[in-house]
Nucleic acid binder design. Structure first.
Lengths: 244, 244
DNA sequence: AACTGTGAAAACGTTCACAGCG
DNA sequence: CGCTGTGAACGTTTTCACAGTT
């Protein structure tokens, strides 16, 4: 019973901040393409959909990379965030389960564009094995361990049906993978030291439904949320309005 | 922002709790299928990947639906959570963008199984319009407003390329939709009163990469998660540990 | 006796407001 | 001056620990 003695080292970046760094990075690369050289916290925050105080606090966890009176140098900040996120090295990914979703993932440009390299696609269905998807030939799931070892896979993306997910997870973990991105609608059990992140469609929809239900009375009729009008139209991340 | 004018009603369930209710619901329906009649907070928490104190606190926001000394009646709790989430009514969904991802979404069983009905699929690409996907014919994006009005769409799922997302979003919002699930890798701007939730693959991968990087090579700066190993191996939601 | 429901405490996250620097 | 970086205030979420109920 001693979790209270958790004295976190200063090197530790808050989890909430880590989750936003990729958003900042995307906003920054957008600026980079438009050849913007420097950006203020206010501008970058607007592009990322957060407020500027939060942005500055987040960046302050990485170090002092801004210039007072001026702002942040885009190029430099891109590099610093990339380095912090571990994107200056390549990560090898395996996608397991090549149904509709796995196919979508295989073709997703965002993978390759940052340092994520898809080493292979695997499926249990004989009808799918051997097909070529986005330039990769689908291998049989039996070759999972072999592929992980051979290509040095460090991130497994599980896009199998729910029933198969835990078994696949156990196998990738046994092969030494310690990072799993799970699309199957199940709670995966993993040993300590393994990170699991979950993406769950139906959960997102249910959360929306909850808020939708709370809005003005019936369908087709909604309140233009008058009143204070204090908020600027900016932050889009999660705008919530409560009915009158 | 206007923090001072934010007098929250007691009816308000904390956002963190709302986000977990769907997970509990899924665990409960699993129990229901196995014909379990009652469940303790400890058992249900394990199935949902959280600890029991959190589960009890969460459920306490909905009301007193348990029985001391016994636990929760599965059927009853399923109903109460469903009602709270607004799943006792049907929600009409439109999927905009029928690429690989849109196709995956269209075929996703989790939609129909809860009360989400896909009213239509829309795309701008003439080559895709007219195709039949999961029993629905893809309509042209021009008919977006018509479809929203006709079918009473209340949730829009945006699965378009990044460049098209904001435009589509503006159109659905103009048509009265106040809930948007966004898969495009952009920050959407919406007026107050509109809820946007974002699902972003590449962000999830980058977060994993961050933690992965900290495992192997870190500058020897970690705490060996001391303590008497109080934590059961249970909670899988986001297990993080740094180890040798 | 077993288990829920909940105040109180601790941890975590956000926002404010301004000192300090370019 | 303008803007960053940050201590301090505030708000939210988690955890603890036990009173209360069946």
């Amino acid at each position: 019973m001693t979790p209270r003695q958790n004295r976190q080292r200063d090197r530790g970046i808050p989890e909430a901040t880590v989750a936003r760094l990729p958003v900042y990075l995307r906003a920054l690369t957008g600026l980079q393409e438009r050849e913007v050289a420097t950006v203020s916290s206010e501008e970058l925050a607007a592009a990322a959909g957060v407020n500027s105080a939060k942005l500055r606090k987040d960046l302050s966890h990485l170090g002092s990379y801004g210039t007072r009176g001026v702002g942040y140098e885009v190029e430099y900040l891109v590099y610093q965030i990339s380095r912090e996120l571990g994107l200056t090295q390549d990560w090898v990914v395996a996608i397991i389960g090549v149904g509709n979703l796995g196919r979508a993932l295989a073709g997703y440009g965002g993978f390759a564009s940052r340092g994520f390299r898809v080493a292979g696609l695997l499926d249990a269905d004989e009808a799918i094995v051997g097909q070529e998807i986005s330039g990769k030939t689908v291998a049989h799931i039996d070759r999972l361990e072999e592929m992980i070892a051979e290509h040095g896979v460090s991130i497994a993306v599980i896009a199998t049906p729910a029933g198969a997910a835990q078994g696949v997870c156990d196998r990738v973990v046994a092969s030494g993978v310690t990072s799993v991105l799970n699309f199957a609608p199940v709670v995966l059990s993993v040993p300590e030291g393994v990170d699991v992140r979950k993406v769950d469609l139906s959960i997102e929809l249910q959360i929306l439904a909850f808020h939708e239900q709370r809005k003005a009375g019936g369908p087709g009729d909604y309140e233009p949320v008058a009143g204070g009008g204090e908020d600027p139209p900016g932050p889009a991340q999660y705008v919530e309005a409560v009915e009158a």
